[in-house]
Computed example of a mutant assay.
Amino acid sequence: MMQISGMVYARPCPKIDEISEAVRGAYGIPSEELCVKGHKGNESRDVAIYLSKKYSRCTCDEIGKYFGGIRPSAVSLGSRRVIERMKSDKRFLNKIKQLEAHIANR
């Protein structure tokens, strides 16, 4: 266990590049596709952003820089798109759950 700012974490959090690697594997895409700025509707990038925001403990600014220099507001928007889609698309929800399990068991 490690202690950070008075809080104890049983396991270190995954890094953004580890999360990106899992998403690239699930979608079968090259790394450049996740980090291309300006591609609206890029599901794989939105998923990687959502999972990074949820698990990496990085700020929206740090996540945005990793994913091609997008603004923190775009990070939040991409994450919200994933959350909304999970509510209405069971297959998509299952894909996210599988990725979460993969990330948790790394």
Rank of each mutant, 00 (worst) to 15 (best):
S73E: 15
C58L: 04
L77D: 00
R57T: 11
S52Y: 06
K97D: 07
S76P: 07
V82H: 07
I49L: 06
G38P: 09
D61I: 12
I29K: 00
I49S: 01
P14K: 09
S73W: 10
R11E: 12
S56A: 10
A74Y: 09
I29S: 05
N94C: 04
Y55S: 10
G38I: 03
V82D: 08
K40R: 15
G68M: 09
P14Y: 12
E100V: 11
V8H: 13
M86H: 07
L77A: 02
H102V: 13
E32S: 12
N105W: 03
Y27K: 01
R24D: 03
K37M: 07
E62M: 10
Y9L: 14
S5P: 00
A48F: 00
Y27F: 12
G68V: 08
R71I: 02
K90S: 09
Y55T: 06
N105Q: 14
N94V: 03
D61H: 14
V36N: 03
I103N: 05
Y55L: 15
R91L: 10
S73I: 15
R57G: 04
N42I: 03
N105A: 14
R71W: 03
F67T: 10
G28N: 09
E62P: 02
E33P: 02
N42E: 00
V8R: 15
Y27C: 03
R106W: 04
L93N: 11
R91A: 08
C58G: 00
K87F: 05
G41Y: 01
R45P: 09
K53R: 12
R57H: 12
P72F: 09
G6P: 08
R81Y: 12
Y66S: 02
D89K: 02
D89S: 04
P14R: 08
A101I: 13
L51W: 01
C60V: 01
D89L: 05
I16T: 05
I83V: 14
L34C: 09
S76T: 14
P12E: 14
N42H: 11
R106A: 10
S76I: 08
S56Y: 04
L99T: 07
K15F: 13
